[in-house]
Design a protein around this nucleic acid. Sequence first.
DNA 1: AAAAACAATTTCAAGCTTAAAACGTTTTGC
DNA 2: GCAAAACGTTTTAAGCTTGAAATTGTTTTT
Lengths: 167, 167
Amino acid sequence: MSTEEWIDGETKVLEAPEDHGDELRLWLRLLTCSALIESEIRRRLREEFDFTLPRFDLLAQLDKADGGMVLGEVSKRMMVSAGNITALVERLVDSGHVKRTTLSTDRRVQIISLTPFGRTAFRKMAAKHGAWIGSLFAGLSDKDRSLLMRELGKLKKSARDALRGAS
Amino acid sequence: MSTEEWIDGETKVLEAPEDHGDELRLWLRLLTCSALIESEIRRRLREEFDFTLPRFDLLAQLDKADGGMVLGEVSKRMMVSAGNITALVERLVDSGHVKRTTLSTDRRVQIISLTPFGRTAFRKMAAKHGAWIGSLFAGLSDKDRSLLMRELGKLKKSARDALRGAS
DNA sequence: AAAAACAATTTCAAGCTTAAAACGTTTTGC
DNA sequence: GCAAAACGTTTTAAGCTTGAAATTGTTTTT
């Protein structure tokens, strides 16, 4: 075996890893973690409160914002399409958790907010939700958590940067 | 302020952090990362191949398994309900990517596998898919990736352990 | 002030997802 | 051998999700 051949072999391994195997495995594991936790949260919300995760998420957005929120803002924060929000809000209004008003100065704009009933219901669920998440993450030390937080921050930035570049 | 009060205050902070704020922020960030990456992958699959992510994922499972796969196995590996698979497979059979056969020794069991067309189509998409993931993760160093992999491994274990304990 | 551009939301069609019930099929226990 | 339990899959009803087209309302141009 000549030196050239050997170096070429190494070079290929080092400089042309075009299969992205590491990244794919990492992505798959990230997805597994999300799916595992998310499906458990969905199950418990349904069993204990007869509620769905999208409904809970929307209420959570409204609980953070006082004075209500414009539909478009809800859509952006929840990272779902605008059309999605329409039906979701419709059902939450029906069930009495949310009320909607049209902005008087711009009649295109819908503002939604929690009803007192909605706020009470949300607070009750949120307390349990926090405990569930707590128990699912209980196997991680403080160090693990802060490490994970930091690394996910880097990933978020990496993905956002890639999106900016692509669009 | 008495010593008792002061210690009690500290103790509360150290031993009774019942709001789970850290864990919730971590969970939210994990979700943000998944959603960001997943929606981009969905978008590109649709734009470049007119394909959906669930269809791609199912093909990926079949590509890994040679000799086909039992429906129940597909369902478990994809972490989706059995009823979901039925319609998904139906559409993939219609589009010619997948073929299905009934196991002769147990007529309850359906085995599905890639058609040659399906395999070709999948391989083409998978190559692109790998590159997309690669670019979305490009901002992470090797060190970051291995760290993230390890920490997500711990999270996976933590969540699974919590699930075992709860059920 | 028309006309055109832009904006926020809704509607629509298609597909995904779930839990629960139903349907055949196979295995188990007696 | 046969009833009952277990199993793998499909069906069903309800809700979620999307992108694109349509609707309605506002602002900008001309």
